[in-house]
Design a protein around this nucleic acid. Structure first.
Length: 296
DNA sequence: TTCCAGGCAGTAG
DNA sequence: CTACTGCATGGA
């Protein structure tokens, strides 16, 4: 047996449910960047010049990854899965806060082990946000598929193609009209091409954002990008930089969840959202995703 | 048909 | 600074 067929095992953290995480990945939308097959998921990865397709499943006490095509070092695979499933976070403090909360305490059992499923690639995360802005999710996933299958490369396994997200260098050369043909609005096309150009021209990178200390500076830098407002900036800090203190202000789903809990018959104000999140200081991102979970 | 969806930029006051 | 408007398209 060669070394690439060996399994890689990642121990499960304390509070973790593979099926809750898979439920998030399988909410009824058609995501083109992974494939669910029963209690396992196939994910094409392309990082630092390495690329391939991995299969992730679970054992009693670990996540198990197997390389199906290509070449990816065990370290790269571990690093990706650790970020994707947020394996390094200790959720106990968050669960203690949930359990102290009159209305939300049920979440700790109902959604037990749900983790912040990440989008490690910042460019992909930003593009996904732009696509998702102000349109229904079904249509958003369709637009993403069109973008990925037209401009991305792929790896084939058992005669199925598995796509990598397109390079910024490729999207940077597109014209607005090309994306308009794919039913992107003019705005979305401009935003995505602009962001791609910044990444391709080394004017923006995940490292640049990571180098900034503190949420405020990072939000300020991100919202300078045309097409990136408070919702997108907080979303990518949460999903791509794994920040735990983010609230997706402006998010219709979040507003709807908070509105229901506060028994309002209108959208909550920013102040009402802040005060609802206040007991969860440091865990806002998790409260945010658990509130989303109540919607689907 | 109408309303709205995991918002944002631009403009007016 | 806040409030309002246009954007674009498909789902329900």
């Amino acid at each position: 047996m060669n070394s690439t067929s060996k399994h890689i095992l990642l121990p499960k953290p304390n509070i973790f449910s593979f099926s809750e995480c898979l439920h998030f990945l399988d909410r009824g939308y058609d995501d083109c960047l992974y494939t669910l097959a029963g209690q396992q998921v196939l994910k094409p990865l392309r990082i630092n010049g390495e690329k391939g397709l991995i299969e992730i499943s679970e054992t009693a006490d670990a996540l198990k990854a197997r390389l199906l095509t290509g070449t990816l070092s065990p370290a790269t695979i571990k690093q990706y899965i650790t970020h994707w499933f947020d394996l390094e976070r200790d959720l106990q403090p968050f669960y203690r806060l949930l359990n102290q909360h009159q209305q939300l305490s049920k979440m700790s059992s109902k959604y037990h082990g749900l983790r912040l499923m990440g989008i490690p690639d910042l460019f992909e995360a930003l593009c996904w946000c732009v696509i998702g802005q102000q349109i229904n999710l079904t249509f958003a996933y369709r637009l993403k598929r069109r973008l990925v299958e037209t401009y991305g490369t792929s790896t084939t396994y058992k005669s199925e193609q598995h796509f990598f997200f397109p390079d910024p260098e490729v999207l940077a050369t597109l014209t607005v009209d090309e994306l308009r043909e794919k039913q992107f609005s003019r705005r979305k096309a401009e935003y995505i091409i602009g962001i791609a150009r910044q990444f391709a021209g080394d004017k923006l990178s995940k490292h640049d954002i990571e180098a900034l200390a503190g949420s405020d500076q990072r939000l300020k830098r991100l919202t300078k990008i045309r097409g990136v407002g408070p919702w997108t900036a907080n979303y990518v800090l949460m999903k791509s930089l794994q920040q735990s203190d983010c609230i997706t202000y402006g998010d219709t789903g979040l507003q709807s969840a908070v509105s229901t809990l506060l028994e309002l018959d209108r959208k909550p104000t920013k102040e009402e959202i802040d005060s609802f999140f206040e007991p969860f200081a440091g865990w806002e991102s998790y409260l945010n995703i658990y509130l989303w979970r109540t919607l689907s």
